[in-house]
């Protein structure tokens, strides 16, 4: 039978163990982002144009196909790479050629990037080329935004909505 002192010792152990558990379950806190910063997150998954445009099959080519696979057009699977740039206040923050995914390079190219910027007014410009052209951009959007501290500005890309979407 434990003595009173031993019971007190056990109580002290349980108290310490509980304090240790309770404290480390929440503290010390972790600062992910400085309080005076905001975040710009550029992310999209987008299928670029095909490397070779679709073309009409000749009657000879159609005839050579098995009857169940005969069709008027043929399209290559491979997509071109996407070139994207992001500027904040005229300064280039991000520039990359994004390769199409998939073994046949026929999947969407994708990106997911985060940038910390000081809170306040900024001009954000994003532009993207998803065709076979050598220069210039197919989409370009510039916005003047006021970012509050710790605000997260998502810059998405939706071709069916006309290009870059700021939200």
């Amino acid at each position: 039978m434990p003595s009173v002192l031993q019971y007190l010792g056990q109580g002290a152990f349980y108290a310490l163990a509980a304090a240790f558990t309770g404290y480390l379950s929440l503290y010390p806190t972790y600062q992910q982002v400085p309080a005076d910063k905001a975040q710009v997150k550029l992310s999209f998954a987008h299928g670029a144009h095909r490397v070779e445009a679709c073309r009409r099959l000749t009657p000879k080519e159609i005839a050579a196909l098995p009857p169940k696979e005969r069709r008027p057009n043929t399209c290559s699977r491979e997509r071109t790479e996407i070139f994207v740039e992001l500027f904040v206040n005229g300064e280039l923050l991000y520039s990359e050629s994004l390769q199409p995914t998939g073994l046949s390079r026929d999947g969407p190219a994708r990106t997911y990037r985060k940038f910390l910027v000081p809170a306040g007014n900024h001009t954000i410009k994003a532009r993207l080329r998803d065709s076979t052209r050598d220069s210039g951009f197919d989409y370009e959007t510039e916005r003047r935004v006021e970012l509050a501290p710790l605000q997260n500005l998502a810059v998405d890309f939706k071709a069916d909505r006309g290009g870059f979407v700021f939200r």
Binding site: L26, Y27, T29, Q31, Q39, N152
Partner: peptide, 13 residues
């Protein structure tokens, strides 16, 4: 999601 969490209390276990 319109905000960055900033400072969080992590469960260190």
């Amino acid at each position: 999601l319109a905000q960055v969490p900033g400072t969080v209390g992590l469960d260190w276990f």
